[in-house]
Simulated assay, not measured.
Amino acid sequence: MSITSALVLFSVIWFMTFLIVLPIRVRTQGDLGEIVPGTHAGAPEHHYLRRKAWITTGVSAVLWCVIAGIILSGWISVDDINLLKVMPPLE
C-alpha cells in the first residue's frame, strides 16, 4: 500500500465515521425550548463538534490500523473480492 492509498483509506474511514458520530448527543433548539425566530426547531444549539472530531480521529485511527493490517498481511486481496470472476459471461 502506497502512502497515497493509505491517506485515501484514512480519509474515507474518517469521513464515514464522522457522519456516524455527528448526530450523537446533538442538543437542538427545540430540545432546549429556545427557538430563534426564522430557524427550524431542529437546528443544533450545542453540537460538540470539536469533541466529535477528536473521537472520530481516534476511532478512525484504530479502524485504519485494523483494515491496513488486513490489506498488508494479504488476508484479503483484490482477487478475493473481484466479482467479475464469479459472474458468468454475458451473451
Rank of each mutant, 00 (worst) to 15 (best):
K85Y: 04
E91W: 10
D31F: 00
V66D: 06
L49S: 13
A41H: 12
V66C: 09
A41R: 13
S11M: 14
M16W: 05
V86R: 10
I20C: 14
E45G: 00
T57L: 15
A41K: 15
A43Y: 06
I81F: 01
L72R: 14
S73D: 15
I3F: 08
A41C: 04
G58A: 12
S60I: 02
T28W: 00
F18N: 12
P89S: 10
I24Y: 04
V12D: 07
M87T: 09
S5G: 06
N82E: 14
V26C: 05
F10H: 13
V86L: 11
F15I: 14
Y48D: 10
T56Q: 11
P88L: 10
M16L: 15
G33S: 01
V78L: 09
W54I: 15
K52A: 06
I81R: 09
I20P: 04
T28D: 11
I35V: 15
G42T: 11
T28L: 01
P23I: 06
L32P: 05
S77I: 02
M87S: 12
L90F: 07
I76H: 01
T39P: 00
P23M: 08
T17Y: 02
S73H: 14
D80T: 00
I71R: 09
F18W: 15
R51Y: 09
I71S: 06
V36E: 14
I81G: 01
A53F: 04
V62L: 15
S11P: 01
W64Y: 13
I70V: 15
V36F: 02
I24P: 03
D31S: 00
W64H: 13
I70S: 03
R51M: 13
W64P: 00
L84Y: 11
I3P: 06
E45S: 09
A6L: 10
E34K: 14
I20N: 10
S77C: 03
R51L: 14
I13P: 07
T56M: 08
W14I: 05
Y48W: 09
I70M: 14
L19M: 14
A53I: 12
V78M: 03
G42M: 02
V62P: 06
L63E: 04
M16G: 08
M1N: 10
R25G: 02
V8S: 03
H46P: 00
T28K: 07
V36Q: 13
L9P: 03
